[in-house]
Design a protein around this nucleic acid. Structure first.
Lengths: 116, 116
DNA sequence: TTGTTTCATTGCAATATTACGATTAATAAT
DNA sequence: ATTATTAATCGTAATATTGCAATGAAACAA
């Protein structure tokens, strides 16, 4: 999964574990409501083109296109060209892998946590 | 949980659902490996002060302090003053609530997803 | 009191993100 | 061939993020 190995700008990625960088890169993509909305829409609707999303979400076409690019970059969606339009959908295999990574982080052992 | 209702800069939060904004705000905080590392450290170690984290993580003290502030802001950690140092720990109740929100998003129904 | 420790805050430079108008590229329709 | 449709890309403005040196504030130690 080379999607998870990007540089993060000013972020000093090299001092963190691969796992920590993975989680951060995934989370960063989820860190915008438009991308959350796009994913939810793709889960609800079977098939989808970019134009639908522009109407559905209410941002300009270049903006949606840019968000789609980031989701594609992480591998969570894939698009297939159909005439003049592009059919985007969830990349299930990568979604499952992503989920696994996030669950390891979210399901941390709380039994030994000290309260202060 | 008023932690989830912040403005997101250029982001047009008003056109998204409260749920979508919640998820994005949580994810944004997880979108930096230092904050992931801090949380993992707080789960591993019972109690913790900022200085420990500076040594542990390898960023300058003001940088760690800033990341701690964001985690505190979302309510995922809380700090209690102990002399000259501050004891930070996980806010378990808020952690559980956060987890619930994220799991609803991650555990979306994949049975009806169309592949393309 | 004077210094020491510890963490927060301020200020700033470098870079990233968000959003959109304008344009381009590619296909489809007439 | 010409025009329409659709989505990607470019360019740019506004804003946010990251990181750290310098400084500040508060509690403790001598």
């Amino acid at each position: 999964m080379k999607q998870y190995t990007y540089k993060m700008g000013l972020t000093k990625s090299e001092i963190f574990t691969e796992q920590q960088n993975k989680i951060a890169l995934i989370a960063k993509v989820f860190g915008h409501p438009a991308r959350v909305a796009i994913l939810e829409h793709l889960f609800r609707i079977n098939s989808c083109v970019c134009g639908d999303l522009v109407d559905e979400i209410g941002l300009a076409q270049p903006t949606i296109s840019q968000h789609l690019k980031e989701l594609k970059h992480l591998g969570l969606i894939k698009g297939s060209i159909e005439g003049t339009s592009v059919c985007y959908c969830i990349n299930l295999e990568n979604w499952m892998n992503m989920k696994k990574v996030m669950l390891v982080f979210l399901d941390q052992d709380i039994s030994k946590v000290n309260l202060c």
